[in-house]
Amino acid sequence: MGGHVMNARENLVRQALEGLEVSDGDLVRLHRDPDFVTRADPARDKVALVSGGGSGHEPLHTGFVGRGMLDAAVPGDVFASPNALQVRAAIEAADTGRGTVLVIKNYTGDVLNFNIAADLLSKTHTVETVLVDDDLATRSEDEGGPGRRGTAAVVVTEKVCGAAAEAGAPVERVRDLGREVVSRSATLGMSFQAPVNPLTGLRSFELEEGEIEFGVGIHGERGIETRPAAEAADLVESLTSPLVESLGLGRGAPVLAVVNGLGATHGLELSVAALELRRCLEGQGLRLERTLVGPYVTSLDMKGVSITLTALNDELAELWDAPVLTTALR
């Protein structure tokens, strides 16, 4: 298996989860058959927050399990939804009797399996859902279509909902805050090089020298357009301006930004992106009040970056600032 740290393909995800217990056993615990991850020290009396989805986006979602964020994360195989049995078991383990909020990225398999799990528990559990569909590169207007993809705004959603749940908010309030974050957020991503799937050894698309792919998601799929490469200032501007427009941000609006590495783009470059992002936002009269910079929602080893903007208000800012202790965010 050249180029990848792995044993048998079918063990990749399970072994990565077992490794997470090695590095962070004080924070997270792996439950097996069906597989899901919970806090090592579970909360006792609060709304439970559960998320999950395909693997290959680490540290999402297992890296956000801990005080102030998720109670449980449910990983599927690489880029594949977890099954409904896993989700159901995670809800049953996390629910303290105060109800559960599921944070679901908008993909057909995730939506189906998370909703089936919630439906089958409807006799015994209160389960509410927040659907994250922030990717501006995908269309939301097609009637009956799948709608926009869920990408890095999921981190903001999990942070805000997690803080609210920790502070004792009831299940409907945690749900509504999550939906508010989603409605106030948008994301765009670009790629310099597609990821190689360790299960197949294949790079998911090819770019010529001097080309970038604009409007990519987080599963190695092509974006909406192949464009010529550009300097950081222009790249960041091309990602940011459509977000500002789509969110209808006026002068003086307070903004939270996630400058997200998509897997193989170095922290050095992400910091340059953050600098250019502030320049770009300030140039439009916006106030960049909070930032999160780093590889948080990755697409295996894709080279590239995504930018998420969330229109802040005082309540969301306060929840964003609340203490958090997870493997990826603290």
């Binding site: 069906p34 594949a80 939804s81 099954n83 409904a84 049995l85 159901r88 057909t108 398999g109 189906l112 399996n113 089936i116 089958l120």
Partner: peptide, 12 residues
């Protein structure tokens, strides 16, 4: 419910 795809979970 333990199966992937769409039909399996819906039968489940």
């Amino acid at each position: 419910l333990a199966s992937g795809g769409t039909s399996g979970p819906l039968f489940g």
